[in-house]
């Protein structure tokens, strides 16, 4: 009898729990469907395609082939048929990688002081500055990139100003150079560095800096030992945000660099376009994703260690 009485509420409880679980799943369904449709399924197509043979005029043939993957790293020399490293792919990847590192470095150099400046303004003014930082996002990337061309042309704003002031006698060749690419990339990705660093600096407790000075730390030591460790998560987040899209950057290097040297993104495009080798293109894209994944894992490791240390 007592059993029966205690049984009933328990059953009700179980029922409620089941309902709860079902509601949770139902609520999660849209998210799961979207993730599957727009992230997992396309990725799955890419993985499958990378193991097929290229079709004669684009697309794929439904035959299993490892050529897509092996060609990423090794290729037969087209003239003497010896097997060798696909140094074209590797050096193009290296170019994209070093461009991303340089861009990240330059955005750090310009972004951190900017973020610091904004975060140390009175609250009302901060919002104005932040607003100004986001203004470039209102215009399409391609339009902004072409506007930069106008600045660096032989008879562009920069050259004409320098000529007028008398600093140079003949226009400097800036268009279609590595300088132009670095300039454009830094300009495009700067806000992605400024915003997370700003968030970190804003949270900084300036009494700690005062305390450091009280303990006879100079400006440099206070910065290195107190400020830097505190804003490090912001700097790392900003670096990741800049580094990852830079790796796949496509428009800016092409328009400002003149397209003479391929970036990794252009190499992938070539395989799906005129190259008609979709499996190789799919394999190269997955390789790029792997590189991004490695840097993300590194980020998670570093930040989680920070937290457990603190």
């Amino acid at each position: 009898m007592t059993d029966a009485i205690s049984e009933a509420p328990r059953a009700l409880e179980r029922e409620a729990e089941k309902n709860d679980i079902r509601t949770r799943w139902l609520l999660a369904t849209p998210a799961i469907v979207i993730i599957f449709l727009f992230a997992t399924a396309p990725l799955f197509v890419m993985v499958v395609y990378s193991f097929l043979a290229p079709g004669d005029y684009g697309n794929v043939k439904w035959e299993f082939s490892l050529d897509g993957w092996t060609n990423v790293l090794v290729q037969r020399d087209i003239f003497d048929d010896t097997l060798m490293w696909a140094d074209a792919h590797l050096s193009i990847f290296w170019r994209s990688l070093s461009l991303s590192v340089i861009t990240t470095f330059l955005t750090l150099v310009f972004g951190v002081p900017t973020a610091w400046f904004i975060a140390t303004q009175p609250p009302g003014r901060r919002e104005v500055w932040l607003f100004l930082i986001t203004v470039p996002f209102w215009t399409n990337l391609l339009v902004r990139t072409i506007a930069i061309q106008e600045l660096i042309r032989a008879e562009g704003v920069i050259n004409n100003t320098l000529l007028f002031v008398g600093l140079i006698n003949a226009p400097i060749q800036m268009m279609f150079t590595d300088f132009a690419i670095a300039f454009g990339m830094t300009y495009v990705y700067l806000p992605l560095m400024v915003l997370p660093v700003y968030a970190a600096v804003e949270k900084l407790d300036f009494r700690l800096v005062e305390a450091a000075h009280d303990l006879y730390a100079g400006r440099w030591v206070a910065f290195r030992r107190v400020i830097l460790p505190l804003i490090k998560p912001g700097i790392i987040a900003g670096s990741i945000l800049v580094f990852i899209p830079s790796l796949g950057a496509y428009v800016t290097p092409r328009v400002l660099g003149g397209g003479k040297n391929l970036m990794f993104g252009n190499l992938i495009e070539l395989q799906f376009g005129a190259g008609r080798n979709w499996p190789l293109g799919a394999a190269l894209s997955l390789m790029l994703m792997a590189a991004v994944m490695v840097s993300l894992i590194y980020y998670v490791r570093v930040t989680s260690r920070e937290q457990s240390d603190g």
């Binding site: 005029y57 792919h89 193009i92 003479k260 391929l262 190259g275 008609r276 080798n277």
Partner: peptide
């Protein structure tokens, strides 16, 4: 003309070499 697929592959390789 549209080159045969095997020739096209050679050309893509040369083109990639050119822009590497």
């Amino acid at each position: 003309q549209a080159c045969p697929p095997d020739v096209q592959q050679l050309y893509t390789r040369i083109w990639t070499d050119l822009q590497k």
